[in-house]
Amino acid sequence: MSTIHESANNRPEELQRLLDKELLQLEKITIEDFEVDPIEKPVTQEDLKQFQQFTSTSFRSLEELLESNQAVLPVDEAITRLQDEALQDRVQMAKRAVQIFTLFEDVRQTVDPESVDLLAQLDAAMDQAHLLLEEIGIQELSVYDEYFDESYMEAVGTIPVEEAQGIERFKVAAVFRRAFSIEGLVIQDALVKTVS
């Protein structure tokens, strides 16, 4: 009595026997069966004209394809140019919005500290304006207590370490104007004093 394992081992041998049996039953083919008939008729002028028309049509189609491709290139260039111009316009508008925000911030700095109600109203307006800037993609860059970074900070002076209230040397201890960016582009540098 054979086990399942033994019958599985015998399967390839059974398949080989079946294949050999089928091969023996196949019809034999000789090289003569593949003999090619010679061309029965010679090429005529009409055949040549048809071939010429076909190649001419193919060439015209190829030319049309190239022309249409060349027509697409200026469209792609125009789209790219419009996208670049749109980005430049967006950056310019963002700069204007930040300049307006900064003007209000400058006004707030000049208000008498005794005018508590007016300061509260200005602070509320400034907070709302800041949120509006964020909604249109303008981000404020972190400046205070950060190491000086000339890519978006401009130093207008220094503060002695004794007066820096625990801020490390080379870090920003005073901010006179905030820094903003849009889509990774700095649109306004911060004006700062660093610890010396």
Rank of each mutant, 00 (worst) to 15 (best):
V75M: 12
Q99I: 00
Q128H: 05
L118Y: 12
S58P: 01
L103D: 11
A97R: 01
D76N: 14
D84V: 10
E134Y: 01
I138K: 02
Q109M: 06
A129F: 10
D84K: 13
E67M: 11
E46T: 12
R60C: 02
E46Q: 09
E114P: 04
Q121R: 10
A78R: 13
I138V: 07
L87R: 14
T57V: 05
A129Q: 06
Q92S: 15
R90K: 14
A129R: 04
E64N: 10
E134D: 01
V107Q: 05
L62Q: 12
L66A: 14
L119C: 09
D117T: 11
E46Y: 06
S58Q: 05
Q53Y: 03
Q50I: 09
E64P: 01
I100R: 01
Q128E: 11
E105C: 02
R96H: 11
H130A: 09
T110M: 14
Q121G: 15
Q50A: 10
L66W: 06
L119W: 07
F54R: 10
L132W: 01
R96Y: 08
V111K: 11
L65T: 07
S115A: 14
K95F: 05
A124M: 04
Q52I: 05
I79T: 13
D127P: 02
Q88T: 15
F101P: 00
D112I: 07
R96L: 10
V116R: 14
H130T: 06
A120I: 00
L82I: 12
I79N: 12
E46D: 12
F51M: 07
S56F: 04
A124T: 07
L118I: 13
L133P: 01
T55I: 07
F104K: 03
L87S: 15
R81N: 12
D112E: 09
S56W: 02
S61P: 02
F54W: 06
R81L: 13
F101M: 03
H130Y: 06
H130V: 00
R96G: 11
A125S: 10
L132A: 05
L82E: 13
P113W: 00
A97P: 04
V98I: 03
E77P: 03
L103K: 01
S115G: 07
R81H: 14
N69K: 10
L133M: 04
S58F: 07
S68Y: 05
D117A: 14
Q52L: 05
F51P: 00
L65Q: 09
E85Y: 10
Q50V: 08
E63M: 15
D112G: 09
L66Q: 11
P74M: 14
I138Q: 02
V107E: 06
R108T: 08
D127R: 03
S68A: 09
F101W: 02
D112C: 08
A86R: 14
S68L: 08
Q128N: 08
Q128Y: 02
E46S: 09
L87G: 11
L119N: 10
M126D: 02
A78G: 13
R96F: 08
A125E: 03
E114Q: 12
V72P: 00
D127V: 03
V111S: 11
E114S: 15
P74I: 14
E114V: 12
V75P: 00
I136M: 06
D84S: 15
A94N: 01
Q121M: 13
E105W: 04
E63P: 00
Q92V: 12
D89P: 00
L73V: 15
L131V: 02
A124C: 05
